[in-house]
Every structure is written in structure tokens, then in C-alpha cells.
């Protein structure tokens, strides 16, 4: 029996209303959540860990992503749209964590120094690059930078994922390229 069929999960279903589902007071379907989690948690966790470089932070970000998506849509069914939605949300949650880390690191440099010693080398360059950019761009720019430079998505894919036009993505990428070039030159001097 898979976890998704586990009757004990049905017992924890809790009635709750959601502002995203006006007038509805529906159970939180733990069996349905188990099905989504079993299918998609590994990819979402791996994505968060690549961005954040820490297993503990990645686990928190993954769980937060599931919660946010389910608060918005309790009836989320497994399928490629569900994974795209979770993936986009996990990117945003991870970007928030990176921004908060940047603020913390500026405030308490000793913590930053200690944290950098425990980071794995794997993905380190990706994270460093993204953190440099995140310090200097807005939310949209941050998402586009992660999706394009770290995740390898095309402009068309980014536009579809974020619900913006390809022209917007193109323009923002050009700005990001100029910024990245300037940062590299800054670092090289």
C-alpha cells in the first residue's frame, strides 16, 4: 500500500476554510498531499538544495513551498502543472531565503564566515553568483536570474512560468547580463 492510500492519513484530514477558496470549507486532504509529496518532493528538495546549499534550509523551503501551493489550491492534482507550480514557488521561497541570508551576512559578518566554511563546494559558484545578483536586482530580476543562469531555462520557458511576456524576459536578461559583466569586472580589479 502506498502512503497515498494509507487510511491513517485520511484520519488527519482537517476541516478548514481558505481565503483562496471563497465560501468553501473543505478538508485538507492528507492522502492527496502524500501523493503529491511522494511524486514531487525529491525534485523540489534537490532544486532547493542546489540553490541554498544546505539540506536543512532546503527541507524547510520545500515544505514551505508545498504549504503555500496548497493554501492557494487545495485541490491540486498530480500532473506536470502541479510540478511547475511547486517548482516556481520553491524558486521564490529559496530566493527569499537567499535575500534574508544576504541581509544577515551584512549584519553579522562572523556568522557569514562560519556558514561559508560549512558550505559544500558543489553548486557554490551558482549560489555566489545568484547572491551577488540578488543584492542588486528586484524580485522579478532575481527569479529570472535563477531560472536562466542556474536552472538553464529558456526565455520562452521563463515567460510561461512567470506569466510575463518574452519581451520582458529578454529585456531583463540584457540588464542582468550587463550587471553580471560589471560584477565580474569589479571582482577582477
Amino acid at each position: 500500500m502506498s502512503d497515498a492510500e494509507d487510511p491513517s492519513l485520511c484520519a488527519v484530514a482537517a476541516a478548514a476554510s481558505s481565503p483562496w477558496a471563497p465560501g468553501a470549507s473543505r478538508a485538507v486532504d492528507a492522502a492527496g498531499i502524500a501523493q503529491l509529496y511522494e511524486k514531487y518532493a525529491p525534485a523540489i528538495y534537490a532544486h532547493c538544495r542546489r540553490l541554498l546549499g544546505s539540506s536543512a534550509a532546503a527541507r524547510d523551503a520545500m515544505q514551505e513551498s508545498f504549504v503555500r501551493v496548497l493554501l492557494r489550491n487545495r485541490d491540486l492534482e498530480p500532473g506536470d502543472e502541479a510540478l511547475r507550480y511547486l517548482y516556481r514557488t520553491a524558486t521564490n521561497v529559496s530566493i527569499n531565503v537567499l535575500r534574508q541570508r544576504a541581509v544577515r551576512d551584512r549584519a553579522v559578518p562572523e556568522i557569514a564566515a562560519r556558514a561559508s566554511k560549512t558550505e559544500t563546494a558543489e553548486g557554490h559558484a551558482d549560489r555566489q553568483f545568484v547572491r551577488m545578483l540578488l543584492d542588486r536586482v528586484d524580485a522579478t530580476g532575481g527569479s529570472i536570474a535563477v531560472m536562466h543562469f542556474v536552472d538553464g531555462m529558456t526565455q520562452v520557458e521563463i515567460a510561461a512560468t512567470l506569466g510575463i511576456t518574452r519581451r520582458t524576459v529578454f529585456n531583463r536578461l540584457k540588464q542582468l547580463e550587463r550587471l553580471a559583466k560589471a560584477l565580474l569586472e569589479e571582482g577582477g580589479t
Binding site: 494509507d6 488527519v12 484530514a13 492528507a30 509529496y37 515544505q63
Partner: peptide, 12 residues
């Protein structure tokens, strides 16, 4: 999986 699903359901 069941434990994680319960945690997420409780948070929601």
C-alpha cells in the same frame, strides 16, 4: 511520506 504529509496538512 505520511509524516511529511501530516505536517504539511497541519500547517495548511
Amino acid at each position: 511520506i505520511a509524516a511529511a504529509a501530516r505536517f504539511i496538512a497541519a500547517e495548511v
